[in-house]
Design a protein around this nucleic acid. Structure first.
Lengths: 222, 222
DNA sequence: ACCCTAACGCGAAATCGCTCGCGTTAGTGT
DNA sequence: ACACTAACGCGAGCGATTTCGCGTTAGGGT
């Protein structure tokens, strides 16, 4: 997302270029935290950052471009736990995601990115790639659990991690309510129970008749 | 969201007004299905619908306004099941949501509404109200299950229904992947298992040590 | 220390989205 | 059938966003 038009023969990532970049992204961060995506305009960013309007347009093309770059900046913000125990890891991760999104700035960033993805096809790609990467990495957590024999071996790691994230994004984007500690606890408990029940096994979900029964069943048509 | 400015002394919902409304909303629907929210502009809608640009601006103010009205139009699109059995109801509902969002038009509509909510505070309110209503109504489904003694009596109905919806919106808005039958089955299984495990009980989630054990436990700090 | 040119600052110009005023059409009540 | 006015069509006009051309500044290589 970085270069809007083809860079000429040579690229200069250092010195002044890096400074203006930092100034602009910091300005976007501030504006986003204060007024949200709705209050985000190129002109305000230019004023706050002290970087000329035309320069920002040249490098990022649009507010969507800026927001995307900010997203990629925050890629390592939530570290993945490794406690040697899957249910514990799930709970730790859910809590980290929860506290991460309890604060307004990151919540606003997600709103902004998803909002951007709706209008800008490039933003959509950036968003999709970002979360695919993240899911793939987080899946490692489940793979360790499989190796330890804590869950069925055909459990889909990315499906489990999607289930960990989904409630938070639902709360932020759809229900538009606060992200709190309860949501994190609830999510961790739910995902672990569902995983044990075989909901995330590959080749179709396994409906359970009684709690704790893990078995495969053919799909029914409604 | 309907009247952008105060209607004068008298309102005329019939005849021509209703026709233009239908024509415009149909045009929005088409444009949305084809090119998505990104390709949605007031001018294109005006051209396709045959309604003058100024008229559309007068009644809806913006594309966000149009999209919101389209959302409210689709309020009864997913009927709530009542099979007399909660896990069956959850599965039926998940399937209905799944097939509802498998088709592009409705998927695009959700993308558009969420995208709009990021920029327009009024759209945000419409979105929140819409889903709160929907959650409240769908909660009835869980309440019946409580009465039948299928789940713990302090289960939070709206938390359960949020869990049914969340995976679909995550798939649409974040993962940006296809909504298919597998997702519906997986979701139904997961939510039922989590509900039995007490993940959605009020007053804090109940971590489970073994599958099927339903018990309350005090929250731990990380 | 020097040159080369990528990246930036600046103001003007073009473009675009949106609004406004006025005349016309067609519901609605009597 | 008639009068009244809400809602629409139309085009001009306004403001905000976006781009362009040119001169200036400051990395990066020799």
């Amino acid at each position: 997302m970085t270069p809007a038009h083809q860079p000429p023969g040579e690229i200069r990532p250092g010195g002044r270029t890096a400074r203006t970049r930092a100034a602009v992204l910091a300005a976007v961060q501030h504006e986003l935290s204060e007024g949200g995506f709705a209050a985000l305009s190129m002109e305000r960013i230019a004023q706050r950052s002290g970087i000329h309007l035309a320069t920002i347009y040249r490098r990022w093309r649009s507010v969507e471009g800026l927001v995307c770059e900010l997203l990629m900046e925050a890629s390592t913000a939530i570290p993945l736990p490794d406690s040697g125990n899957l249910p514990e890891d799930l709970r730790l991760l859910a809590r980290r995601i929860g506290s991460f999104y309890t604060a307004a700035p990151m919540r606003r960033l997600v709103e902004a990115v998803v909002s951007s993805a709706g209008r800008n096809s490039r933003a959509e790609t950036v968003l999709a790639d970002f979360f695919h990467d993240r899911l793939r990495m987080a899946g490692e957590l489940v793979r360790r659990g499989i190796e330890r024999g804590e869950v069925p071996p055909d459990t889909d790691p990315e499906a489990v991690m999607s289930a960990v994230g989904a409630p938070f994004y639902y709360r932020i984007l759809i229900a538009r309510g606060p992200v709190d500690a309860d949501l994190a606890e609830s999510t961790a408990t739910a995902v672990w129970a569902a995983t044990l029940a075989g909901a995330y096994r590959t080749g179709g979900a396994a409906p359970v008749a009684d709690p704790g029964v893990v078995r495969q069943r053919t799909e029914r048509t409604e």
